[in-house]
Amino acid sequence: MRRPVPPDPWHPLRALTAARIGLGRAGDNLPTDALLRFGMAHAEARDAVHSPLDAAALADALAERGLAPLAVRSEARDRAQYLRRPDLGRRLAEDDRAALAAHPARGADSVLVLADGLSAAAVARHALPLLDALLPRLSGWTLGPPVIALQARVALGDEIAEALDARQVVMLIGERPGLSSPDSLGAYLTQSPRRGRTDAERNCLSNIRPEGLPPAAAASRLAHLMVGARALGASGICLKDESASPGSLRAAAHEGACSTQNREKPRN
């Protein structure tokens, strides 16, 4: 390849960090290759935000596992409204609320929700591997039907579980894509879920993807949290994840970045 601008002499330090260091410069600006790589990463992140979740394919894959998934939508009618109105993404569409309330599965120990969130790619790629590792750890649990949720925010899970009269909800949801992580999955746990639960009453595992917290490892941590929340009868800041390494888990303050609280961010 054409190389009119060499990388900087300290370029080998790239092995120490994923940060874009030692790029070299054309005058004061980026070399062409670095410019295009950045553009591609941003394009992938944008596509992750705007591509819809293939709910039918996900439902088929769940059916293959002997599960009978339900599908719901939030009150956000499309992606543009979803992005502007997070409050609508936290509320169930009225028809779906009625359908869940009429569903015969009541009083489950936990219900699993698979939600598009801000990255459908995250759910499409990592939710099933996580479930495959998680479900064998939950023998003896009564699980409600898995629910596929579209145009969903984290708190939608609480209303879904409330409508199904479930004692716990685990929301697997696409996180806000980063430039180098378009497909990070988040897992949010609420014990005794109901509308109005705050972020401090949830626990969160973030950055679930092969390059971050791999799905199998996430399943082990999540099972641990689920058991702990059930025993304690509560989730959130009162529930410690003793299997976690320091700093990698805390009460879920922020969707999509539950491990970065040192810059104040909006709640989702």
């Binding site: 004061d28 806000r176 430039l179």
Partner: peptide, 20 residues
């Protein structure tokens, strides 16, 4: 670096941008 914050997951301005 490269305007890409790999911890906070957002894009800002870079060392290159300041020089420009």
């Amino acid at each position: 670096p490269g305007a890409d914050d790999i911890m906070l997951n957002y894009q800002s301005t870079s060392f290159h941008d300041a020089a420009a």
